[in-house]
Simulated scan of single mutants.
Amino acid sequence: MKFAVIVFPGSNCDDDMVYAVTEGLNAEAEKVWYTETSVADYDAILLPGGFSYGDYLRSGAIARFAPVMTSVMEEAEKGKPVLGVCNGFQILLEAGLLPGAMQRNQNLRFICRPTELVVENNQTGFTAGYKENETISVPIAHGEGNYFCDEKTLKKLRDNKQIVFTYKSNANGSVADIAGVINEKGNVLGMMPHPERAASDILGSADGLKLFQSILNHWRESHVLTS
Rank of each mutant, 00 (worst) to 15 (best):
M1D: 05
M1R: 00
M1A: 12
F3V: 11
A4I: 06
I6F: 06
P9S: 13
G10I: 01
S11L: 11
S11P: 10
N12A: 12
C13N: 10
C13D: 02
D14P: 01
D14Y: 07
D15S: 14
D16T: 01
V18G: 02
V18Q: 04
A20L: 09
A20H: 06
A20G: 09
E23G: 11
L25V: 12
L25F: 13
N26G: 15
N26S: 15
A29H: 07
A29D: 06
A29S: 12
A29L: 11
E30I: 07
K31F: 06
W33V: 07
W33I: 05
W33R: 11
T35G: 14
E36K: 12
D41I: 01
I45Q: 03
G50W: 02
F51I: 08
S52H: 03
S52I: 02
G54L: 12
L57V: 15
F65P: 00
F65A: 10
V68S: 03
E77S: 14
G79I: 06
G79E: 08
P81H: 09
G84V: 04
V85M: 09
N87C: 10
G88M: 02
G88D: 04
F89L: 10
Q90C: 11
L93Y: 10
A95E: 04
G96Q: 10
P99I: 01
G100N: 11
A101H: 04
M102C: 05
Q103E: 13
Q103Y: 08
R104A: 11
N105F: 05
N107A: 11
F110V: 10
F110W: 13
C112M: 01
P114A: 07
P114L: 05
T115F: 01
V119S: 03
E120L: 07
E120T: 07
F126P: 02
A128W: 02
K131N: 14
K131P: 00
T135G: 02
G143S: 13
E144Q: 13
E144G: 04
G145C: 08
N146Y: 01
Y147C: 01
F148K: 04
C149E: 05
D150R: 08
D150L: 10
T153M: 14
L154R: 09
L154Q: 08
K156C: 03
D159T: 14
N160G: 03
N160I: 01
K161C: 06
Q162A: 06
V164G: 00
F165I: 05
T166Y: 05
Y167L: 10
K168D: 14
S169T: 15
S169D: 15
N170L: 13
A171R: 01
G173R: 04
G173A: 08
S174C: 12
I178L: 07
N183H: 07
E184M: 01
N187R: 05
V188L: 05
V188Y: 00
G190K: 01
G190V: 07
M191R: 02
M192W: 09
A199E: 00
S205G: 09
D207Q: 09
K210R: 15
L211I: 14
F212I: 09
Q213H: 12
S214R: 08
R220A: 11
T226K: 15
S227I: 11
